[in-house]
Design a protein around this nucleic acid. Structure first.
Length: 341
DNA sequence: GCAGATGATTCGCA
DNA sequence: TGCGAATCATCTGC
C-alpha cells in the first residue's frame, strides 16, 4: 500500500479557503484553465463520493484511476488542511475517561460470585456463605449446594462464551475498520491518531454491550441466589427427641430459660441442629410460653414430674450431674410460673 | 381445606 | 449483640 499520501504536512497560504490548492495551482502542477480545473476537482470529488456504490472490480479500477489522477495531489493537500482545522476542533474530546463505577461494581460482583476471574470451585464459597447466612446445616445441604454450583457454573459458562464472542466480534470489526481506513487513506488524509480514536469508539461501543452482558449475568446470579435462599427457608420440624431435649432444658430452667453459649452448643449437638436453631427455639418458646402460660401448664407439669424423677434417680446414684439436659428443681418452675417473663 | 403448631426471619430496643 | 415481639411460611392433624 502507498504510505506517502497518508502523511499530513503543512502548506502555504494563498487562495482563501483552499490555500494549499491555490499554491499547488500557482506552482504549475495544476492546469492553467480555471474552468477546466474546477471541472477536474468536481469530477474527482464525484468519483470519491460514488466509489462505494460500485462493484469491487469497478471500485478498484476507479481507485487506481483516482490515485493516478493529475489533480489528486492538489485535492489531497486541500483535504489535509481542512482536516487539520477539524482535528483542532475535536482535540481534547477523546481524553481518557475514568473507569465506569457501575462497570466496576458489576466486575467486583461477578468476581465475588466466582463467575468472572479464575474458577474457585464453581461458587461453592458463595453457596456456603448463602447457607451460613441462613444458619442451616441440614443433611440435604450437599444436594442443594451441588445444584447451586451446577447452575452457577452454567451461568459462568454462558457468560464466558458470550464474552469471548463479543471480544472476537470486536477484534474482527476493529480490524475491518482499520483496513478500511488504511484503504481510504490513499484518497484522503487519515492520521494514526484518528485511527486510534476510531478504535477507541469501537471499543467503547463493544464495552457497553459487554456491560449489558455483565448486568444480565449479575441478575441471573441474584435470581439463582435468592431461589437458593428461598429453598433454605423451607423448614422442617425438629424430631421428637430433639424437641424433648429442648423442652426438658426449658422447663428445668424456667426461672432463667436463657442457655449460655456452651449450653446452646451442647443442646445443638444433642439435637443435631445448629446453635442458631437452638437460639430460635428458645426465643420462640419463651415468647409463646409467656403469651399463654395456661396452655403450657400441662406440658410444664409433665416435664417437672420427669425432672423430679430424674433428680431422685440421680441423687440415688450419689452423683449430681450438671448437664444442660439435667433439670434443676421443680422450684424453678414454680418461681417462673409466679414471675412470668 | 382449614386451623393450629412451629421454625425462621425481621425489626426495634437496651 | 442478644432479646422480645411481630410476622411469615411451612408443617401437621383433623
Amino acid at each position: 500500500m502507498d504510505e506517502q499520501p497518508r502523511l499530513m504536512h503543512s502548506h502555504g497560504v494563498g487562495m482563501a479557503g483552499h490555500p494549499g490548492l491555490a499554491q499547488h495551482m500557482q506552482d504549475g502542477t495544476a492546469g492553467t484553465d480555471g474552468e477546466g480545473r474546477k471541472q477536474d476537482i468536481g469530477d474527482i470529488l464525484q468519483q470519491i463520493m460514488t466509489i462505494t456504490d460500485q462493484s469491487l472490480d469497478e471500485a478498484q479500477a476507479r481507485k487506481h484511476a483516482l490515485n493516478c489522477h493529475r489533480m489528486k495531489p492538489a485535492l489531497f493537500n486541500v483535504l489535509c488542511e481542512i482536516k487539520e482545522k477539524t482535528v483542532l476542533s475535536i482535540r481534547g474530546a477523546q481524553e481518557e475517561e475514568p473507569p465506569d463505577p457501575q462497570l466496576m461494581r458489576l466486575d467486583n460482583m461477578l468476581l465475588a460470585e466466582g463467575v468472572a476471574g479464575p474458577e474457585k470451585g464453581g461458587g461453592s464459597a458463595a453457596a456456603a456463605a448463602a447457607a451460613a447466612a441462613t444458619g442451616g446445616i441440614g443433611a440435604d445441604n450437599s444436594a442443594e449446594h451441588s445444584d447451586y454450583r451446577a447452575k452457577l457454573s452454567q451461568i459462568r459458562q454462558i457468560y464466558h462464551t458470550e464474552l469471548e464472542k463479543y471480544e472476537q466480534a470486536c477484534n474482527e470489526f476493529t480490524t475491518h475498520v482499520m483496513n478500511l481506513l488504511r484503504e481510504q487513506s490513499r484518497t484522503r488524509p487519515i492520521s494514526p491518531k484518528e485511527i486510534e480514536r476510531m478504535v477507541g469508539i469501537i471499543h467503547r461501543k463493544f464495552s457497553s454491550i459487554q456491560m449489558q452482558l455483565k448486568q444480565s449475568t449479575c441478575e441471573a446470579v441474584m435470581i439463582l441466589r435468592s431461589r437458593f435462599l428461598d429453598a433454605r427457608r423451607k423448614r422442617r420440624n425438629f424430631n421428637k427427641q430433639a424437641t424433648e431435649i429442648l423442652n426438658e432444658y426449658f422447663y428445668s430452667h424456667l426461672s432463667n430459660p436463657y442457655p449460655s453459649e456452651e449450653a446452646k452448643e451442647e443442646l445443638a449437638k444433642k439435637c443435631a441442629i445448629t446453635v442458631s436453631q437452638v437460639s430460635n427455639w428458645f426465643g420462640n418458646k419463651r415468647i409463646r410460653y409467656k403469651k399463654n402460660i395456661g396452655k403450657f401448664q400441662e406440658e410444664a407439669n409433665m416435664y417437672a414430674a420427669r425432672t423430679a424423677v430424674n433428680a431422685t434417680s440421680v441423687s440415688a446414684h450419689g452423683s449430681q450431674a450438671n448437664s444442660p439436659s439435667t433439670p434443676n428443681s421443680a422450684g424453678d418452675l414454680f418461681h417462673y410460673a409466679c414471675h412470668p417473663l
